[in-house]
Design a protein around this nucleic acid. Structure first.
Lengths: 339, 339
DNA sequence: CGTTAGCACTCGTATTATTCGACTGCTAAC
DNA sequence: GTTAGCAGTCGAATAATACGAGTGCTAACG
């Protein structure tokens, strides 16, 4: 895999960079004009042919310039761009924006998606941090209509969720409050199992509450895709690769139902994943690349964020922005939920 | 405006219905073959010419069939389809789905958007019901890090919101809880002004809390577009009118930032608005129509929902589905938040 | 042996010409 | 008022052509 000469690496890098900028197949002559390589176009052509032979480039057709393959992009990402950091000025701009925002997770997520979209010329997705092992902090039961109760649950860490509960027989607000108080005094700080345990001798109604609570804590796992912020779809659809209807649909669908995020959630926090051309796993995303990271505090509360764009993506910017924003969001999570 | 003969109305209706199904300009001959009109194609042509003269139809070009204008659609919607109700079987299906779902607003919204999108062959948007005049129900202050406090506010009606608050000097959880208890006992059931009033002699910290609370209650107005559910964008983009890049972009942008909903929020609950071809107000949506309604309880908690699609929209289905789902959601809101 | 100039060849894109056919609009007859 | 018939129109589809960017090969060069 590493049997590329230095010059081949240089040529490959230049082709990819040029192609990323222009979206046009890169010819030997054009490449030579823009960069001083000290060799003739014929030599470049030879190198190009060699790179094609090795699978890093292709031809759309005989008389066109070269275009990177997924393998080419992969090499580019892993060997050629290195660990780029976001320029300090941009870091500051972003950090500044985050400090401007109200101290609220939803605002941060929105901001993060906006920053990602602008910076990486791609569509951005940010999911809310999800608490891993929810522990009860506070519970409220609010009587609404005769037989209906609104249950509001605050988990340790500040996540709030709500559900309706229908009663078997009418209860007044007083009785409800009593039950809530009982839960709060007995079960604060406990997880699902703990609550079940502590409330072993529960009344029918209390059991209903426990059931709903359990359901809520468990379903926490199942809805990672519920609270999702998106941005930049319109812009990315302007890119020439999405002229083809099917490719445009693929990315719109992917943004609507970002199922691919589920796979990402198994990676550790802090690493930035680059998936090029769907990588076999997502056939319909063969024209797309994504740069994704998990953020938050491992084992406690984590979310995912990243960008989705054409394979011809500014990987350097994308990777460094995703990493920076992920780190920033991790800091914010630990500020918000930190112990 | 009503100077159309009965036959003209019939012809107009048939043309529009045909065009809605086929997306192809409708010729006199084709129209005659599909429907038994008892007259010849020449007569139809005369009627078509008259309808065009009156502004209800156009020609893409000389040798093409007729296509409805926005005025034509408008007449169709207001005079020709009448008050269609959704078929009972569909009503039942939808109602059944809603009862299957967990008793949670977010699930209902998601479901509503799915139902709307499927039924009206359009993209659907559903915004969360927004409480009009928020009154405090319960407040919690949770210490996270040294100088940071998470404030969770439950409003009357069950809306829950959260914000961070940075302290000027450290406070422990006990002190925080005390403050929260004070607010809860003194201010439950009050609106912004009431809280300010009751807490006239507040400490510095309490004033910070009040400030944040005020901010939260006020900003409630400003973020109607925060919690929004969408569906069906992918499908609607398949429609032939969105082959043109610019039109596709228009609808994607509109779905990303549904600013047009703001205007809708002034209409009364219960009426279904039909906006055809942007109606001058939204120039970029000239190729789109929308069918929108507000739902909820007037003056207490309302949201908006509707569909966005090509002007060639199945208006009958769209209107009846939007109305039915809006009514359903209104019922659910009054179940949830009802007094 | 790597490099380079030169040149024939390929093939997609753009351009132009041509045909085809659906539909209209008109006229004259019913 | 309605209808048959027909000339006329204009977009869409098809074919023919020219253009040119870029390759790949070969032979010469240092």
């Amino acid at each position: 895999m590493n049997d590329l000469t230095l010059r081949q690496q240089k040529v490959l890098g230049l082709i990819i960079r040029t192609y990323i900028n222009t979206a046009q197949p890169v010819g030997s002559k054009a490449l030579l004009e823009a960069n001083d390589l000290g060799v003739s176009s014929a030599t470049i052509r030879n190198e190009m042919a060699a790179l094609e032979e090795l699978g890093y480039l292709t031809h759309p057709h005989t008389s066109a310039g070269r275009v990177p393959t997924d393998k080419g992009y992969r090499f580019f990402v892993e060997r050629l761009i290195g660990d780029v950091e976001l320029p300090l000025t941009e870091q500051n701009t972003i950090r500044h924006q985050f400090h401007q925002a109200k101290l609220e997770m939803s605002q941060w997520m929105q901001l993060a998606s906006a920053v990602l979209a602008r910076s990486a010329r791609s569509a951005a997705i940010v999911t809310a941090p999800k608490v891993e092992q929810p522990r009860l902090r506070h519970l409220e039961l609010i009587s609404t209509q005769s037989q209906l109760v609104l249950m509001v649950v605050v988990f340790q860490g500040g996540t709030v969720r709500q559900r309706m509960l229908s009663l078997r027989e009418p209860m007044d607000q007083n009785a409800l409050s009593q039950t809530a108080t009982k839960f709060n005094s007995l079960c604060a700080g406990l997880d699902v199992a703990g609550v079940r345990n502590r409330m072993a001798d529960a009344s029918d109604f209390e059991n209903d509450v426990i059931k709903l609570l359990t359901d809520l804590m468990a379903s926490n796992d199942a809805v990672p895709l519920n609270e999702v912020y998106r941005d930049g779809l319109t812009e990315v659809l302007q890119e020439p690769e999405f002229t083809r209807r099917s490719d445009a649909n693929a990315i719109v669908t992917a943004m609507e139902q970002p199922t691919f995020l589920i796979d990402v959630l198994s990676s550790p926090v802090g690493t930035v994943q680059v998936v090029i051309g769907g990588e076999g796993r997502w056939r319909e995303l063969s024209a797309c690349s994504m740069v994704i990271a998990r953020y938050g505090i491992e084992g406690f509360a984590t979310g995912a964020l990243g960008v989705l764009g054409p394979t011809r993506m500014p990987y350097g910017r994308a990777i460094s922005t995703v990493r920076y924003v992920a780190d920033l969001m991790s800091d914010l999570v630990s500020d918000l939920y930190g112990d």
